[in-house]
């Protein structure tokens, strides 16, 4: 393998909101093929960092590179095209479209039929449309939703909606799949099957970035993690290391 092991390099990212430093000087590296988690108490800046990495916010300082290519300041759609795809903490599906249509939308940035092609319906366009539908079907199967393919997204159960968001994000063929609290609101059974799904996705070659409150899930699944507190990275490493870090214990339990 001549490919660099580093997939995403974050350097000195800073961001303030009206005088409040939500993030300052955060640097981290995510390696290819790992599950990397970002944890921290409420208000630590996890979601801010996440939104910067997916293009919703622009960083005030610092930058980040995907496979060595500068990404800071790009629009979300450009980042998705470059290979960073995401899910949302408060599910944002296209509620009134069917499950399969939701996934098909995810194929948008990997397909190219133009207005003219759509109107004329030439063989290229039809072949592309067919491949979109097939891929969407495959992905629904992959996350275990194929029996609900034609149900409206809004009518799916909560856990299924989370899975559908993952399928939709996977449809963009991401190199890095960023999940914002994927287990929020799930019962232990759903969390367990989510864990298996994430492991399958990793096995199939997608690197995962995970923000999560469920510490048990995080510790059980991630290869490495970073802990944020008050906008700064206070620890990074393997779960066992981080768990015993006094700074982390202080951040979570308060100073003794």
């Amino acid at each position: 393998m001549t490919q660099d092991a580093k997939l995403l390099e974050v350097r000195d990212i800073g961001r303030t909101f009206g005088g409040l430093a939500a993030l300052s000087g955060v640097s981290l590296t995510i390696n290819r093929g790992e599950i990397y988690a970002l944890i921290g108490p409420n208000g630590a800046g996890k979601t801010t960092l996440f939104n910067i990495l997916t293009g919703i916010y622009k960083p005030d300082s610092g930058n980040f590179r995907l496979e060595g290519v500068e990404m800071a300041g790009k629009k979300p759609s450009e980042l998705a095209k470059s290979g960073i795809s995401r899910t949302f903490q408060n599910i944002r599906l296209f509620a009134n479209m069917s499950a399969i249509e939701n996934v098909m939308v995810g194929r948008h940035c990997r397909t190219r039929a133009s207005v003219l092609g759509a109107i004329l319906g030439n063989s290229n366009t039809r072949a592309e449309e067919k491949s979109i539908a097939e891929m969407a079907k495959h992905l629904l199967d992959y996350v275990g939703l194929s029996r609900h393919a034609h149900m409206l997204a809004r009518n799916l159960s909560y856990g299924d909606q989370r899975r559908l968001e993952i399928a939709r994000a996977l449809a963009t063929e991401p190199k890095l799949l960023a999940l914002d609290e994927p287990a929020a609101g799930m019962n232990p059974l759903e969390t367990d099957s989510l864990k298996r799904l994430l492991e399958t996705i990793r096995r199939d070659g997608v690197t995962l970035l995970l923000i999560e409150h469920d510490v048990k899930l995080v510790m059980g699944i991630c290869d490495r993690l970073a802990v944020l507190n008050f906008g700064k990275k206070i620890a990074e490493g393997e779960p066992s290391q981080v768990c015993s870090d006094p700074l982390v214990i202080e951040a979570y339990l308060g100073a003794s």
Partner: peptide, 13 residues
Amino acid sequence: EDEIAAEAMGIDT
């Protein structure tokens, strides 16, 4: 349906 989600899914809104 959702402009932010559409943009995040790679649609140049």
